[in-house]
């Protein structure tokens, strides 16, 4: 239960730091996502109650910004960059290859919950486009083969280096 665990105590501290101000809603949501990994309905109800804001307002803010996640992601996360430079450098082909190889759709996870394929607008390493992020490792000037190999390594339990 959300109310009992240690994470709730951390969230309470954050709320207190911001003096339960409604103008701190974005900061609080950021911290809540750091603490819980994603923002589920129960958590959002809790935050709206604490800040004395209508749940519709909180939900509206959360869904307005693409950074907030309402669903839990897979154990390993592959993020494809959809920035302009990556688009021009054919990132689409790599995304299609990942979808085919691991049988999942962008925005979703594999049936066993091991792997998610997410998209981001731009990671800002445009000069190295196309870029794919496998867990924490950015793969620049990426190719289908290289990315699939890296994902297989990650799934196989070989820990991806975080440089």
């Amino acid at each position: 239960m959300i109310k009992d665990d240690k994470r709730r105590a951390m969230l309470e501290k954050v709320l207190k730091e911001h003096d339960y101000q409604e103008s701190a809603l974005l900061e609080i949501l950021h911290r809540a996502q750091e603490i819980y990994g994603y923002l589920d309905k129960e958590l959002l109800m809790d935050i709206s109650g604490s800040l004395n804001l209508p749940p519709s307002h909180v939900y509206g803010v959360v869904t307005f910004y693409s950074f907030f996640k309402l669903k839990k992601s897979g154990e390993h996360v592959v993020t494809g960059c959809l920035g302009t430079a990556c688009y021009v450098n054919e990132v689409e082909q790599i995304l299609e290859a990942i979808e085919q190889e691991f049988d999942l759709k962008r925005g979703g996870s594999t049936a066993d919950g091991k792997l998610s394929l997410l998209l981001t607008r731009c990671i800002g390493a445009c000069a190295m486009a196309p870029n794919i992020v496998v867990d924490y490792e950015v793969i620049g000037k990426a190719t289908k083969e290289l990315v699939i190999q890296k994902i297989k390594q990650a799934l196989g339990g070989v820990k991806a280096e975080t440089s």
């Binding site: 302009t84 688009y87 607008r121 731009c122 390493a125």
Partner: peptide
Amino acid sequence: DEGDPGVFANR
């Protein structure tokens, strides 16, 4: 808030 994809000058 450099929201443009493909732009990284401010960062």
